[in-house]
Simulated scan of single mutants.
Amino acid sequence: MNDRILFLFFLILVLASCSKINKAKDLLTHSSAQEIYKRDLYINDDIFKIWENEKQKALVYDSVAIDLPYQESGRFFPKSFSVYSYLIELHRGDLLSVEVKLDSTSSLAFIDIFTLETSGFKNIIGSEFGKQKLQLEIAEDKLYKVIIQPEIDAGSYFNIKINRSPAYLFPVAGGKNRDAQSFWGAQRDGGKRAHEGVDIFAKRGTPVIASTAGRITYMGEKGLGGKQVWLRDLKRSQSLYYAHLDSIASINKNQVKAGDTLGFVGNTGNARTTPPHLHFGIYRSNRGAINPYHFIKQNDVKPLNNENFYPNHLNGLVTRNANLRNSNSVKNSEIIQKLAQGDTIQILGRSSEWYHIKATSSKNTSFLHSSLATPLN
């Protein structure tokens, strides 16, 4: 008995040591979540290759576009090799968040985010192994593709949420998107210069707040901006410019917190003939002014909070002639294929009144209005 206990003890030590070695190796080699999955769960090489190839197909062929916020629910079926691919237009200053909630703690899902480059799609970030959540601050105005792939034997219901939010707080207390009425690039002085910021109109004396934590590098009155504050965002190596203030608040220059009052809306400087407003700009040391709007743009639509799992079936039947669309909307989509009554489809999930589907005659996924098909048992 003692020998058996001793053997088990050493076996545990060996396994623990191997685990630590693998973790250290992953840090050095930057192993992807998929590579760790294959190694730690002893996935067969041939099956893993099929699984990986399905992801590559989705990356190349799938072009369904979505507006944010987006939510989809459904069910992962073992060895169905389903891939969920979404094309999204994003801008510098957006915070993209992707989350997959599962009804089984033993199932895994993998999230990857790609940018569209001239040479094709480039992977820029992937979720950690065992994590079904990923957030990315967007650095460039581009098309992005989000790919979600369940593990090979996943058999659970899911709820996918994709959303964007601004990286910064809105700089005028209580302000809304509609208060911004003069944007980046607008002509000034008869076309002699372009507007390097966004103007946010509000009542005189409305508090102007720090959109992020940082330190103040200048506060005072000079030039076209009149009374102004410069706040350095150390995290992003850029400076936030608050101009035309009626007055400047008293604040600790070196310990500014997000939400602190920096001053109050006015029309000093060259804004004396205009209604009170804040000119808000962002400047990078090596690139000059950049468009600040998406850093502060609030969500036009509230995120969806439905946590229910849609009990969909793997297959469906088209009930009458139908149009397949590249987005879950009639207004903002294109017809990419037509199906006839009686055609079969693979149902990936459901987003509001739309099925996210793959037709048996197509390499692409698409959206089909739920009134045009019925699930098969």
Rank of each mutant, 00 (worst) to 15 (best):
D94C: 04
Q255T: 15
L96H: 02
R320L: 09
H91A: 04
T105K: 13
N267P: 07
E35D: 11
D62E: 08
F81N: 06
G120Y: 10
S165W: 12
K338N: 13
Y283T: 12
M219E: 04
T212V: 12
D62N: 10
D26C: 12
H244P: 07
H195C: 02
N163V: 14
G197Q: 00
K227W: 05
F367S: 01
A213E: 12
K235T: 15
L240T: 04
T212R: 00
L102Y: 04
K363M: 09
L240S: 04
L96E: 00
W51M: 07
L304G: 03
N270V: 15
E334Y: 08
F121G: 06
K297S: 13
L59T: 02
S211N: 05
S370W: 05
I290G: 04
K297R: 15
N326M: 03
E334V: 06
R178P: 01
S239E: 12
N254I: 09
N299F: 06
D179W: 05
T274P: 08
L15T: 13
R204P: 02
G259F: 05
N321V: 09
T105V: 08
A65L: 10
L348R: 00
H369W: 08
R75D: 02
L41E: 15
V14I: 13
G214S: 14
S250F: 11
D260Q: 02
Q56D: 12
S97C: 06
V64H: 02
A16R: 12
S85I: 03
T115K: 07
F121E: 13
I336K: 02
S182C: 09
A373L: 07
E128W: 04
G175V: 02
K25Q: 14
F367P: 00
R320W: 10
W354D: 00
L90T: 01
A109I: 10
E89P: 03
S362F: 01
G130E: 12
Q71F: 02
N291A: 11
Y144I: 06
D199H: 03
D67E: 10
I113E: 01
L169M: 14
S361N: 06
E353M: 06
G155W: 05
K38H: 11
K257R: 15
D46M: 06
R164S: 10
D233L: 01
C18S: 14
K161N: 15
K38F: 10
K222L: 09
V14T: 13
G197E: 03
K235D: 15
F114I: 07
V14G: 06
